[in-house]
Design a protein around this nucleic acid. Structure first.
Lengths: 141, 141
DNA sequence: CTTGACCTTCCAATCGTTGGAAGGTTTATG
DNA sequence: CATAAACCTTCCAACGATTGGAAGGTCAAG
């Protein structure tokens, strides 16, 4: 059996647009073609797309996925290689999380300081203008 | 006093490239020009850039920053407006964090399951190929 | 006067994804 | 059979924020 690109899209969860893009950039090999020129996808090809999809869901970059695909099809890979790649990715994700967490902490503090009514004085805006200054001012009405 | 673009860059923490870009896209008003055609920045203009920088550090999009700048220069703004904007942003940040957290959790689990030696069997790769299946396999050596 | 450090504009690339236009194919229906 | 809808193809552009480079003008010190 073989499937059209839209069927492959549905089965893999990757849009047809992106499947073509991945093909063009070499992440997946060129699809077979029907006489009409339409792309055809085997179960194996679709499986590969599903792998890609899953890896993207886990936040791997396309570059990482290239490596993962190579490891996937390498029967003799060392699991240590995969693990190292995954650990590097987790590390990067954790760093991004920490960054965001810091932003959230700062903003949450400012939000709590802001009475949020129709008066103009606002610690949030003040902090943006003068970062050092504004620290805490929950105490006035 | 007035400053060159590289001085403004240094004082604001925004690269000269980005200052020009922000000007082109209208986030900051066109800088004054010297006879030579060089951009000149007043203290006020630099202050504005610092505001932008601070907002970007807190993860606000350029679009958000436009609004923040408008609120900043509006003496009659309601603090509620600023607060609402900030809350929306925090909400978006939290969602992004949750996404990443999920990725980290899944990956961390897989990493712990992977013995990470020179043998080929690797739960991480297996999970990418067959998401449902691989769940836990810490028990074999 | 030359050199080097600045400045200018313009155009391209990044990353992953989406959108559209212009045109060919297949399928179903009148 | 004709036609319309639903596909498919390629190509080109945009998003958002940032960086890079090329080609050329200006300024300051030596």
């Amino acid at each position: 059996m073989s499937y059209s690109i839209s069927e492959a899209a549905e089965k893999s969860g990757i849009s047809a647009k992106m499947i073509r893009y991945y093909e063009k950039t070499g992440l997946v090999p060129p699809a077979q073609r029907a006489d009409s020129g339409y792309r055809k996808y085997s179960d194996k090809a679709i499986h590969r797309l599903q792998f890609v999809r899953r890896a993207r869901d886990l936040g791997f970059s396309v570059k990482d996925i290239e490596e993962l695909l190579a490891l996937w099809s390498d029967q003799n890979r060392a699991s240590a290689d995969v693990k190292k790649l995954a650990e590097g990715h987790v590390h990067a994700l954790r760093e991004k999380m920490d960054e965001i967490q810091q932003m959230v902490d700062t903003l949450q503090h400012l939000i709590e300081c802001c009475h949020g009514d129709d008066r103009p004085d606002c610690p949030i805006i003040e902090n943006l203008g003068h970062p050092e200054q504004t620290r805490n001012s929950t105490l006035n009405t």
